[in-house]
Design a protein around this nucleic acid. Structure first.
Lengths: 198, 198
DNA sequence: ACCGAAGTGGGACAGTTGTCCCAGTCGGAT
DNA sequence: ATCCGACTGGGACAACTGTCCCACTTCGGT
């Protein structure tokens, strides 16, 4: 096996772990399964990480920092706020449909973090990041459509995150596309009413 | 140990399992942990259930059938639809605050069911039940406030379930009561706009 | 009283999992 | 070229898990 420095192995193992978690769930993401996915030997795992817990913790933080802006739609001049928001939510939905396993993995990692007091902050950080991304999208949307949020944008963003989460979880269960689109429309509606025309 | 018929043991084990899952998570709900919680010996477990999987499957179906109407608020004459819906959502939120571990357990069971094709229907049934309960609450609310849902009530209910789920998940993470109430208000707003005054 | 079926207890087993050890090997600085 | 530390492979270990077995006890119907 070609020699790889420990830092690169850490990255490779985290990538492999994310694939395993997405494909088979966190419970199946054993050290051996991760190592097999990465094409390494078991010893390399504990050379790169002190423990499986350390890997999972780092997986969560990595995955948070990678989280991209998926909600921002193309902005078209003259669009109303409602149109922008709904388009953004639908874009998120397409992202979800394209890679449901990824969102499912995120959900599982959150639940896992929620289960122990010392990991709870990881879950909180994950959602803080979601909220941050949502707030940015809402800023852009308000700017573009010339409105002003009645509450602080973080508060509105927090509502958007909740709606997005609900859309995700329910769709993962019933895979009802039309229902998900109805949720997007209703959410856009609610959010629109949290803004005043300037 | 006093003798208990197998059917009662099944019920006792399921209750114990739900407590263990709520307290420590599904991953910690081993046969030994469940049996200890129920105060039985390990042999009793496999006398009552063929396997742990069978127990978990039955736990899910049991828990679905027990699911109560938590969203229906007290109806006060003259209340607007928006007021009824927001009060209902806030009542659900109080229910969540009173026993967060229970909702967390539900979420974990859903995720678990989502992970294998043969169990997916269990998750679907769980959400079908949620939707059913929500639809009933929406029927009552519309009746009481003299409005008519523009879409079939099941569709509106599906949206309500998504909003409730989002409220739950995000609150479980950040425990921000005010944010959750804002979500409830926004959700009530969106739902209200899905009805026409008759 | 008795007898078969139902229920119980403890121990055992094999498979899996996280972790560790150790002997070896490679690569780059000297 | 050599040598030290970084890396690798394979095997091992103990803990845990689901499951099973078997000898035993209790109960309800006869």
């Amino acid at each position: 096996m070609t020699r790889i420095p420990a830092t690169e192995r850490r990255a490779a193992l985290i990538d492999a772990a994310l694939r395993v978690v997405s494909r088979n769930g966190l419970a199946q993401a054993t050290t051996r399964a991760i190592v097999a996915e990465a094409g390494m030997s078991l010893a390399s795992f504990h050379y790169a990480f002190a423990s499986r817990d350390e890997l999972v913790d780092e997986l969560i933080t990595t995955v948070i920092s990678r989280e991209q802006q998926a909600v921002l739609p193309d902005l078209i001049p003259g669009q109303t706020l409602h149109e922008i928001l709904e388009a953004g939510l639908l874009r998120y939905f397409e992202h979800l449909r394209a890679d449901p396993e990824h969102e499912q993995a995120m959900l599982e990692l959150t639940q896992y973090a929620l289960r122990s007091p010392e990991r709870h902050p990881l879950a909180a950080a994950q959602y803080a990041r979601y909220t941050e991304l949502a707030a940015h999208a809402l800023d852009v949307a308000a700017e573009h459509s010339g409105v002003r949020w009645r509450s602080p944008v973080d508060r509105v963003a927090r509502v958007l995150v909740a709606f997005t989460d609900g859309l995700t979880l329910t769709w993962l269960v019933d895979r009802d596309d039309d229902a998900a689109r109805a949720v997007a429309a209703a959410a856009a509606d609610a959010l629109t009413r949290m803004a005043d025309t300037r």
